[in-house]
Simulated assay, not measured.
Amino acid sequence: MDIAALIAWVVTALGGFVLLARWISRGGLRQQQTGTTRFPAPLVFGHFLLAAAGLVVWIVYLAADRSALAWTSFGILVAVALLGFTMLARWIPVHRTPATSAEDTTPAERHLPVPVVAAHGVLGAATLILVLLAALGVAGS
Rank of each mutant, 00 (worst) to 15 (best):
D2L: 03
I3H: 05
I3Q: 02
A4C: 04
A4E: 04
A4K: 05
A5V: 00
L6T: 12
L6D: 02
I7A: 04
A8V: 01
A8Q: 03
W9F: 14
V10W: 06
T12V: 06
T12F: 02
T12L: 04
A13I: 06
L14I: 13
F17P: 00
V18K: 11
V18I: 12
L19P: 13
L20F: 04
A21E: 01
A21V: 03
A21H: 11
A21M: 11
R22G: 06
W23A: 00
I24M: 11
S25N: 13
S25L: 03
G28F: 01
G28K: 08
R30G: 07
R30D: 14
Q31K: 06
Q31S: 11
T34I: 01
G35K: 09
T36E: 02
T37M: 03
T37Y: 07
F39N: 03
F39Q: 05
P40L: 12
L43P: 05
L43W: 11
F45K: 11
F45S: 03
F48V: 14
F48M: 04
F48C: 09
F48P: 03
A51N: 15
A53G: 15
G54A: 00
G54C: 08
G54P: 02
V57P: 06
V57E: 08
W58M: 03
I59G: 03
V60K: 07
V60R: 09
Y61F: 15
Y61Q: 08
L62P: 11
L62V: 09
A63Y: 08
A63K: 11
S67L: 07
S67Q: 14
S67K: 13
A68T: 11
A70M: 08
A70H: 00
W71L: 06
W71F: 05
W71V: 04
W71H: 07
S73R: 04
F74R: 02
F74A: 08
I76G: 10
L77S: 15
V78G: 09
V78K: 05
A79I: 01
V80P: 06
V80A: 00
A81Y: 07
A81F: 12
L82R: 02
L83H: 10
G84T: 04
T86V: 01
R90W: 10
R90F: 03
W91D: 08
W91S: 07
W91Y: 14
I92V: 15
I92A: 14
P93H: 13
P93I: 00
V94T: 14
R96W: 10
T97Q: 15
A99V: 14
A99C: 02
A99I: 14
A99K: 14
T100W: 07
S101D: 13
A102M: 09
E103V: 12
E103H: 09
T106A: 12
T106Q: 13
A108V: 09
R110Y: 15
R110V: 06
R110S: 12
P113V: 09
P113Q: 06
P113H: 12
V114A: 11
P115E: 03
V116N: 00
V116T: 05
V116I: 14
V117N: 00
V117D: 05
A118Y: 09
A118W: 12
A119I: 08
A119P: 04
H120F: 10
V122A: 13
V122R: 02
L123E: 10
L123I: 05
L123N: 09
G124Y: 02
G124R: 05
A125N: 01
A126N: 08
T127P: 10
T127G: 15
T127F: 01
L128S: 14
I129N: 02
G137S: 00
V138A: 14
S141D: 15
S141M: 06
S141L: 08
